[in-house]
Simulated assay, not measured.
Amino acid sequence: MSFLSATNMTGGYGAGPDILHDLELSVDKGEIAVIVGPNGAGKSTGMKAVFGMLNLREGAVKLDGTDITGLSPQERVHKGMGFVPQVRNIFPTMSVRENLEMGAFIRDDDFEPTIEQVYELFPAVYEKRNQNAGELSGGQRQQVAVGRALMTQPKLLMLDEPTAGVSPIVMDELFDRIIEVAKTGISILMVEQNARQALEIADKGYVLVQGRNAYTDTGEALLADPEVRRTFLGG
């Protein structure tokens, strides 16, 4: 069984119409799974469904074999999920270090070694540790946001558009760091608009269309699929 197994997810926001239709997502231990697709395909909605942020009318979410479908997002964090939203993902008036400390809110042990690990993973975060997070560049803010999520010591890290609005050089650096995180055994589920680049680092890829699974395969196989290339990757 996959470490994360989300099956037959059907639902939407509140009493609104269904956005997801029998959506299936799974991630193995230490695997990078990437969700791509056109605008409005339900990519971020699928991520939020896994994290318990919308109503599922059907389907189930299991983490490490445990059914967590009925748990709140806060309870899922305690079970080992870390979530980095696309926007409003830092505390801009707090220092970088204080942002990381906020990520350790569920812990009652010594979290200093984890802060050191984040500094090692993101040298720019260490260099800016005493600055207000709101003064950082877009790429540096994303590093702080990911670092704060890592402070919870997640088993599954979910990233919603981590490279939105950053330069290609910063995007490549972020992807390199994400690969390093996965190598530690943390599972990664990521929504990404830069589909081609994301699939290059993906063990598994999901192409969504109108809230449904259109294609599922390894990142390498999806990049080589002529139909996927023509329809979603610009040829």
Rank of each mutant, 00 (worst) to 15 (best):
157 L>D: 10
48 K>T: 05
136 L>R: 06
118 V>P: 07
148 R>G: 09
3 F>W: 13
109 D>H: 15
222 L>T: 09
30 G>K: 05
115 I>P: 00
121 L>W: 03
29 K>Q: 14
226 P>M: 12
162 P>Q: 03
69 T>V: 11
136 L>P: 14
168 P>T: 08
13 Y>G: 04
230 R>M: 04
196 R>C: 03
87 V>R: 08
121 L>C: 02
141 R>C: 13
155 K>E: 13
82 G>S: 03
118 V>D: 06
104 A>C: 05
37 G>Q: 00
18 D>C: 13
144 V>E: 13
7 T>M: 05
218 T>S: 14
9 M>P: 10
85 P>E: 08
140 Q>R: 00
40 G>C: 07
189 L>E: 10
39 N>A: 10
16 G>K: 09
228 V>R: 04
108 D>W: 06
64 D>K: 05
42 G>V: 04
138 G>T: 12
194 N>M: 14
163 T>Q: 13
106 I>H: 08
2 S>K: 01
106 I>G: 05
84 V>E: 07
62 K>H: 13
51 F>Y: 10
78 H>K: 15
193 Q>K: 00
178 I>Y: 07
65 G>R: 12
163 T>G: 08
22 D>E: 01
192 E>L: 01
30 G>W: 11
42 G>Q: 08
23 L>S: 05
111 F>S: 08
3 F>P: 01
134 G>Y: 01
138 G>R: 07
104 A>S: 15
36 V>W: 06
193 Q>V: 02
54 L>P: 04
43 K>P: 10
119 Y>R: 01
21 H>G: 01
190 M>I: 03
72 S>T: 15
216 T>C: 08
121 L>Y: 08
211 G>N: 10
144 V>C: 09
186 I>P: 00
187 S>I: 06
33 A>N: 02
152 T>V: 07
134 G>I: 05
47 M>N: 00
85 P>K: 01
213 N>Q: 03
144 V>R: 02
219 G>S: 01
103 G>E: 11
128 K>F: 07
27 V>C: 06
170 V>R: 03
67 D>Y: 13
202 A>T: 12
116 E>M: 07
46 G>C: 07
197 Q>D: 13
52 G>M: 04
112 E>F: 04
40 G>M: 13
198 A>M: 12
221 A>F: 00
